[in-house]
Design a protein around this nucleic acid. Structure first.
Lengths: 160, 160
DNA sequence: GCAATTATCTCGCTGAGCGAGAGAATAGTC
DNA sequence: GACTATTCTCTCGCTCAGCGAGATAATTGC
């Protein structure tokens, strides 16, 4: 095994670290973007996170209950009730008892919530897709594998 | 210009959207990771964000004042004072009046804060670097350009 | 010297989220 | 089919992060 040139040895550590910093910077930007959007619309960051979760689930045709929502956001039941109250008061969702299991409450997303989500993501997603078009398909595939690998690492670290 | 095959046309939109969802999923994971680490150490998410900012600045040799810190985190002055009080009470930072401009307060990072940062990032960064080693240098370069492009888009969207 | 400006802090308040536990519906056991 | 255990949601009382308004203190400019 040949000894690598100095540049290679340096970049073996330096390049990943640059990527780590980029990742962190990106999440900071995304967080701030979300927080600012939320504030402009009279929402709290948690409300926005909940909305995203609810819209994702609605698109996937999944039923969301307060319990599931709270778990996804890391809230306890009391906090979750408060959150759902808030979203309902804003006219973004509606409670409806599950006729199958009447202990459960289904959270139904209102039209207004979808419009709000559109306002939040719409522009940003459009810009993101446009930016990604400037990459080759092979490069996008690499980026996808990279993001998947990183997500996997973070998710695994969280388990512990 | 030749008309693209159907698969190409589909992937032109579908692949970026998959990447967008991956990005969102990643930030969610990172947020939760941070929130859980913070909770385990008796910190609030904001405290951790502040700590990251302070450690970054310390490494870059920059002076951080409560004003700068609050601005970076989107807090007003009252909230910032509370944050700094909290971090000081935890023994993570120290206030020190700037002898040059005695209106200013310098925030000095204590040893304990660095150890905490090490505990937070250390393991995760190690895992991330290990995961990245499984990519070719060229691929990492692509990932870096990709992340930089995405960050740029989000940052630009935030300006508006 | 005297405003105007800048940086930080104090006070009082609102409200997100927590812990504990109540209430209501369902599932399992004999 | 009553009876206990479990599951899901909500209520109550509380803590504390962060806000708005404004006080305080140091600096800069005229």
């Amino acid at each position: 095994m040949p000894s690598p040139r100095k540049d290679d040895r340096v970049s073996e550590v330096a390049e990943p670290m640059r990527l780590v910093h980029l990742l962190r910077g990106l999440t900071v930007e995304l967080d701030l973007f979300g927080a600012e959007f939320a504030a402009r619309n009279g929402l709290h960051p948690t409300d926005l996170r909940a909305l995203i979760h609810l819209l994702d689930a609605a698109r996937a045709g999944e039923v969301v209950t307060p319990g599931r929502l709270g778990e996804a956001l890391g809230l306890n039941s009391a906090g979750t009730t408060g959150l759902v109250d808030r979203l309902e008061r804003l006219g973004l969702i509606r409670r409806e008892r599950d006729p199958q299991d009447r202990r459960r409450v289904r959270l139904l997303v209102e039209e207004r919530a979808m419009e709000l989500g559109e306002g939040f993501f719409g522009g940003l997603i459009g810009d993101l897709v446009a930016a990604m078009r400037r990459f080759e398909p092979g490069e996008l595939d690499t980026a996808r594998r990279f993001l998947a690998a990183v997500t996997e690492v973070v998710s695994a670290a969280r388990e512990r």
